[in-house]
Nucleic acid binder design. Sequence first.
DNA 1: ACCAATGATTGGTGACAACCTACAATATTT
DNA 2: AAATATTGTAGGTTGTCACCAATCATTGGT
Lengths: 143, 143
Amino acid sequence: MTDIPPTLTALTAYLLSKVGKTARGRVAARLGERDLRFWHMSMLAALADFGPHSQRELGARLGIDPSDVVKALDELTAAGWAERTRDPADRRKVRVVVTPEGRAALAGMVRDTEALQDELLAPLNPRERARLHDLLLKVFDRP
Amino acid sequence: MTDIPPTLTALTAYLLSKVGKTARGRVAARLGERDLRFWHMSMLAALADFGPHSQRELGARLGIDPSDVVKALDELTAAGWAERTRDPADRRKVRVVVTPEGRAALAGMVRDTEALQDELLAPLNPRERARLHDLLLKVFDRP
DNA sequence: ACCAATGATTGGTGACAACCTACAATATTT
DNA sequence: AAATATTGTAGGTTGTCACCAATCATTGGT
């Protein structure tokens, strides 16, 4: 009775949408237990992987509106995970850096996400998981 | 500059979430050109694939709150794509059936979605697309 | 006949994401 | 010097989504 219409499951776009939504939902739920949100991890990852950003760079990289970057950074700095300092060369800009505590927090979030990912991909063996990752990466690189 | 942090792209859960979101967004955009939404297609598909439903059955199958089913069906019936008739055996229930116009509309939505899917999966060859579909199906079947 | 359960319906709520405007400070161009 | 552009910031709007409570009609059981 709870079967899903084959007309829908025959569409890869439908499966992508649905599976993606549950993935997003579960990650959000697990992070939410510690009052964290998805973009906490995204921003910390951007700062950790690519070094300091201005706020506009951060927003551009992650596809977030500059005004929303402000609010997000307010939380990150309040938590001691990122620091805002004025760029001496261009005092309009803010130089955002991740703190050691921020890196530690990021590592924790990544671990949590990986644990959850294991549950989500339970029906797949290691080879299949790698294959899925590869395929998704190809699609992802072409927005 | 618009590169995505490798810390994130290394997570399959992140890719699923992101790719799923763009898939959902694009389908919504294309359907939206004709003032259609995602659940229009879902409901019509459920009715077409499994025959008449009561509204509660519909909601249970698609994971939609019964009260939202009411609102959605209001639109479907207004468009002439579904019909509500009282179940003579149990006059509490509403027997929902899809009309021929509804089937035609569904076919159009499926075609649109498939066309869009071709764009989305452009980086993959046919064999890879089939493989991706298979893998997603396995993950999807295990919620 | 009465009572509890079920189905449909109405009318909300709260969370959240995406976006937009206005503005102050600073830089750049003319 | 003056005009223009960029950056961060504050504040608000919008739409969507999922969910909830109350209500009414109908059914089935006792």
